[in-house]
Design a protein around this nucleic acid. Structure first.
Lengths: 152, 152
DNA sequence: TATTGTTATACTCTATAACTATA
DNA sequence: TATAGTTATAGAGTATAACAATA
């Protein structure tokens, strides 16, 4: 049966979604690398930018990651002087994470790279094409009840 | 400007493509794991299934990976008794890689999982929706001249 | 010297689970 | 004992570059 042939995968929509996704992400990875930032770091920077001071555990929750993973990412951002840890007086088990001034300056620049990257690969589509594809994809997200942010 | 705001990324089509791609791939990773196979291994299995006996360097070329990466993947498949190395008499620097009988049996089963996974997430779309999205994505692949297969 | 395949090393991304400090 | 955060360990995925064998 052709349906189950291992050579049939180009008939899969998921194949093309993954193909495009991987290449678009790869291009973005390269753009971020020019600013010495990885994709996972960008995700945290963006979240910190919009949330302000947060607990690592909140960050983990929001991003659908473990506390251990967040701990390492925050440490990397700290080493790069983009984020800082602050003690919480009321409960010494907690700490807040916050962007440094440098982090606050850098994040919008990275956002611009994200815009450029999107425009580079999807900018040629018409408005109605973009809308239709986006709606189909959002619908898939919704009907599967996915809530966490995509990371890689 | 809202356009460059770090909070604007949900307006990016690439965001939704990545979001869906990651979740669909993750679900497929789980299905493969039940068969004790990783995604990278599946990609090589599928290629070996359709190509028959090939040199590792050909495999690397076809899949857009380095020879080192292929070397390790082939070794993993060999340990799992899914593929085997054979000496080439005419030139001892070369070798051919080929699926074992078990590898040939398993690959169509994995292809079926790929079919099921695709149906699970995209099966609700109409034929014309699928076609339109696939065509837009294929067009993006073509206009960027991408040739290698997506891996992750 | 050029080529094939292997190996050493390294890095990203992530998880699980054990651990420390605090409550 | 329960919770926050850290660390140890592991494993997938991949690259670069040095290496051995062969041509």
């Amino acid at each position: 049966m052709a349906k189950d042939s291992p050579n049939n995968l180009e008939a899969h929509l998921g194949y093309w979604v993954r193909y495009v996704s991987n290449h678009v992400s790869h291009a973005f990875t390269q753009k971020l690398a020019a600013k010495n930032v990885t994709v996972a770091e960008w995700v945290v920077l963006r979240e910190l930018y919009s949330l302000g001071a947060v607990y690592p555990s909140e960050l983990a929750e929001k991003l659908g990651m473990t506390r251990g993973a967040i701990s390492k990412l925050v440490e990397r951002l700290r080493v790069k002087c983009l984020a800082e840890r602050y003690a919480v007086e009321s409960d010494a088990r907690y700490q807040t994470i916050e962007l440094t001034a440098a982090g606050k300056r850098l994040t919008p620049t990275l956002a611009k790279l994200a815009d450029e990257n999107d425009h580079e690969f999807f900018g040629h589509l018409t408005k109605s094409q973009r809308t239709e594809v986006a709606n189909l994809l959002k619908d898939i997200v919704q009907r599967n009840g996915w809530k966490d942010l995509p990371i890689s």
